[in-house]
Design a protein around this nucleic acid. Structure first.
Lengths: 339, 339
DNA sequence: ATGAAAGCGCTAACAG
DNA sequence: CTGTTAGCGCTTTCAT
């Protein structure tokens, strides 16, 4: 592979002049042309390692996500990539599979590659609590997306999931629903806070908070999530009187619930309202559009990058947080309670 | 940031000894412990640039995809990442948005970062034809996933889409369907070869190849693809006699077609069979399971990595290709023709 | 088994 | 405007 010395020899110049052309510093036009010709002729590509070693910025930022096949994370990531491309930065992407140790390892890997900054989407709660991120932030500009919202000592982009859930409950209650079931995953912070709002909203209206209206779906892949929810909701719909509305913590579960309603012959939304969460492709792919909460992934990605660049400029040492408001999108699967 | 010199000083050793410990070369146990203690104390992370510059391999490989929100590509990418992680390699991921110039730029960017190899998923046909990849392959181990299958001078992983389409047509014909519509995107190699098989299969059975049974759906985002297909298929279903089966080139379109059938009050699969392609999450999310062609994305990803590692070992200079066979998955949306 | 020293390819002073 | 030169942090001979 040709080096800057080969180019200098070919062009009959010094390596410094070649470097200047490469970095778009002022040179004589003729010099520039000679260098460009040599670069083309030898198919020269600068060695990124050497560049980085001599102190220049790497013009790359690292992103950690938990899964590459979760479209929710990938939409945020795509927004990040686009934003970075505008600024001519490159993205290094690693997926942690929810493994705390892997998250630490990859973040260090990124540091080792001297990325100019890092964005961690949905960071492991253990690594937040243990102060690991706090320590890393001292050495590297760092932005967390959707950490525990109580974390205030790190740059973060937070979606106010409580607000989204509140919107759903307000909507259901305005539609006169009083018996509203809640379908959630077994463990997870975001499930907990949604349940909290569900309880508070019902209680605030003087409605009964019934433990048997909470359905827990075991973790699993997408196919399992749908099937498990279908089975669980089928049971729920057997009792009399049955709930007139169901909220599901993601669209996968909501589609499972709709399957259950279809099997039981219960018309949606006439006799049963079903609301999902995430506003994913599933919300628009069925014959019946699914009402769902949009978490504004594009905004999350863009905001994360903007915040990171501010942090990289370093003029603002104190942690900043950007709050993003979710939005309830009403489609065909919800409506007023059937009297 | 601490360097190897700081560690050496802290441990009271030379940088060479530190380097040896870091690279797991034979040293005295005591030496090792001293170094490890210093590393922990100073939170030392080796500088990747310096490592790379001194000639070591980068232990990273570059992957180019066309879109990060297309779950089809991401499933391949996830399989690649898992395979790489087993071997302790890191993934650099770039998305080209189908832009040929961007594809060239990012591949050079990866070269500049001295990745040990590159995988390009769904490479732009222009860059294949122009010999660009051929030139790059001379400098860098390279594997193409799903290029034009006629390309034989580069390492490649090919899914025999013709075979998958043949399976669909054989199945439809065995179910006595004779009037089979074909829904495709406007431009794209994979659409063309599927249409080719559609034509050949019909002709081979002595069935009529009707131009008015081909429906072209303009490019667009996922929501548009569903809506456009619904509109187009609605029109198709108005004519008498109408087709008894529809093949759609992806599951998005197939879901659009199913919406159209539902609106028109045509029962699926009793009076209309609908088959999709890609076997994505959409195939299992609706109340009616969608028959679809599985392109074995996991296998594609794993095979690409295996092939790349062979190429990196360099013992096999002639281009190799791995063929992967698709599989038709029958669900609820297809059945025998209603007589 | 360990240390000293020579690069790896580039950028950024500094000198001309 | 251009050339010379000193590092950047690490790996890898070559001595010891």
């Amino acid at each position: 592979m040709p080096t800057i010395h080969d180019i200098a020899k070919e062009a009959g110049l010094s390596i410094a002049s070649v470097s200047r052309v490469l970095n778009e510093l002022p040179v004589r036009e003729e010099t520039m042309k000679k260098v460009q010709a040599a670069v083309r002729k030898l198919e020269y590509v600068p060695n990124f390692f050497a560049r980085g070693l001599s102190g220049a910025e790497s013009r790359s930022i690292g992103v950690l996500i938990t899964s590459m096949t979760n479209s929710y994370y990938m939409e945020i990531t795509e927004a990040i990539e686009r934003r970075l491309r505008e600024r001519d930065f490159t993205l290094l992407l690693c997926s942690t599979d929810l493994d705390e140790a892997l998250e630490r390892r990859y973040l260090k890997e990124h540091m080792s590659r001297r990325v100019d900054g890092c964005i961690v989407i949905d960071p492991a709660i253990g690594n937040v609590r243990s102060g690991f991120f706090k320590g890393m932030a001292a050495q590297l500009p760092l932005v967390l997306v959707q950490p525990d919202p109580d974390i205030r000592d790190l740059h973060s982009v937070i979606v106010d999931q409580r607000e989204g859930m509140r919107e759903v409950m307000d909507y259901f209650i305005a539609q006169k629903h009083e018996d509203i079931a809640f379908v959630r995953g077994l463990s997870g912070y975001s499930y907990d806070i949604k349940e909290e709002v569900w309880r508070a909203s019902l209680a605030g209206q003087g409605l009964e908070v019934r433990q048997d209206r909470i359905v827990g779906i075991p973790d699993g892949n997408v196919a399992e999530a749908i099937a498990e929810t279908e089975a669980a909701v089928s049971k729920l719909l057997l009792v009399t009187p049955r709930p007139s509305a169901i909220f599901c913590c993601n669209d996968l579960m909501a589609r499972g619930a709709m399957k259950a309603a279809a099997k039981a012959g219960i018309p949606v939304p006439q006799e049963l309202s079903i609301c999902g969460h995430d506003n994913s492709i599933l919300a628009i792919s069925g014959s019946l559009g699914l009402s769902s909460v949009d978490l504004k992934m594009r905004s999350q990605g863009r905001s994360a990058v903007d915040l990171l660049f501010q942090a990289m400029e370093g003029k603002d040492p104190e942690p900043r947080r950007i709050l993003i408001a979710p939005q309830l999108v009403i489609r065909d699967s919800t409506g007023p309670r059937h009297i």
